[in-house]
C-alpha cells in the first residue's frame, strides 16, 4: 500500500500491519529530516510533489521490486508539505519469507524512490530557503540494480 500524505506516521502501527502468516522477515526503513547540511543548521524542509504522479510512480517501483523478489506486504509512506528537523519523511516496510529478499527489496525501493518519485525538497535555514540539489551518488545507487 502506498500513501503520500502530510500527516506523520507511527512505525509501530505500520510494523504490526506488515505482520502476516508465512512471512519470516520484515525490514523497515525510516528517513528523517536532517538538521544540518554543508552550510550549517537546517530548521526544516518543504516537500513539493506532483500530486497526480507521485503515488503512481511509487506503485511502479514496488511492482518492479515484486518482479525481482518474492514479497508479502509492502508499505510505502512519503510525507509532503512542511516538516521540521528530526521529523519522519519516509517509511518503507517490506515483508518476505526470507531476510535477503526483504533487505534487498527495501533498499531497491528506497534507491528508486530517490531518483524516480516526483518529489523535491526545499531546506529552510537561517540564511533563507534553498532547493536541495540532486546527488550523483543517488543515481549511482540505482545503477547497481
Amino acid at each position: 500500500m502506498i500513501s503520500v500524505q502530510q500527516q506523520d506516521f507511527d512505525c509501530g502501527h505500520e510494523y504490526q500491519q506488515l505482520r502476516e502468516q508465512g512471512q519470516g522477515a520484515i525490514v523497515t526503513f525510516v528517513g528523517l529530516v536532517r538538521d544540518f547540511n554543508q552550510e550549517g543548521q537546517i530548521k526544516g524542509l518543504h516537500l513539493e510533489h506532483y500530486p497526480q504522479m507521485t503515488e503512481r510512480a511509487l506503485e511502479q517501483i514496488v511492482e518492479q521490486a515484486r518482479q525481482r523478489w518474492p514479497l508479502g506486504k509492502v508499505r510505502v509512506i512519503h510525507r509532503v508539505g512542511d516538516l521540521d528537523g528530526g521529523d519522519q519523511i519516509v517509511f518503507v516496510g517490506v515483508a518476505s519469507e526470507h531476510r535477503d529478499a526483504a533487505f534487498s527489496a527495501a533498499q531497491f525501493i528506497m534507491d528508486y524512490l530517490k531518483t524516480q518519485a516526483p518529489i523535491w525538497k526545499k531546506e529552510r535555514s537561517d540564511i533563507g530557503e534553498q532547493w536541495v540539489a540532486s546527488k550523483s551518488s543517488d543515481n549511482d545507487a540505482v545503477k547497481k540494480w
Partner: peptide, 25 residues
C-alpha cells in the same frame, strides 16, 4: 504522469511536465 524521454512524441490533450531532478526520500 510517466517519466518520458525528451524525444517522445506528444499527442493532443496530453499533460506534459518539466521539472528538475527529483530529491525525495
Amino acid at each position: 504522469h510517466e517519466i518520458s524521454a525528451l524525444e517522445t512524441i506528444i499527442n493532443d490533450n496530453d499533460e506534459v511536465a518539466f521539472f528538475p531532478p527529483v530529491t525525495g526520500g
